[in-house]
Amino acid sequence: MSKELITLVLVVLFAGFMIVFYFLNRRREGRFLRDIPAYYRLRGAIEVAVEDGTRIHVAIGRSDITSPQGAAALVGLSMLKRIALIASDSDHPPTATAGDGTLGILAQDTLRSTYQTLNILPDYNQSLGRVAGLTPFSYAAGTMSVIFDENVSVNLLAGSFGYEGALITSAGERSQTLTLAGTDNIPGQAILYATAHEPLVGEELYAGGAYIDAGPMHVSSLHAQDVIRWLLVIFILGGAVAGLLRGFL
């Protein structure tokens, strides 16, 4: 089977499951999601930040939007949109930092469209979505100053982060603010697991939208992901057993 055909089958299967779960979820009440403590803590922290008049900081990393790593940043943008919808009308609205020019523009666009939806566009400030630095460590240094200087109470790192993630989470630790962090980068995940208050491991990052009510399609895509994962597990185990049997026969 050619690579293109496998891609096509996977995409069609995935899209099919997403649509099926979308209609199934509309009929039944409740979301049927497994517990990810980080997101429950995030929901509570957003409410507290709005009440306290403190700021929520969303870091969407420094991936190139045209690369596969861009998906992690897109998740960060979805979560930024949802958080901005809840908290933009407060004294200290959410702020976003990016380590790439394109992501900086997308963060600003996301925040601006949210302000427009809330009918508070005159309150929108261009500097709420900003580029903090363009190399890994300059991005970390720029983000650290946001955490220290701008009355931040919650840091959400949702995007592609490598080693520099340790400096950002350490800034959260030193300023005694809650830090939730997820990345698509393997060494970055190990680092964030050790340094963040609430780490998001593997696909947990991509589940964020479903847990903070970013839209019904987020929930259905999460269910589709679970089904495809089980299919892949069966496929891998079947392949291993077939390989073993071929060795014996």
Partner: peptide, 9 residues
């Protein structure tokens, strides 16, 4: 997991 999340996104 990351790959599946990327496709879903």
């Amino acid at each position: 997991g990351v790959g599946l999340g990327t496709i879903a996104t």
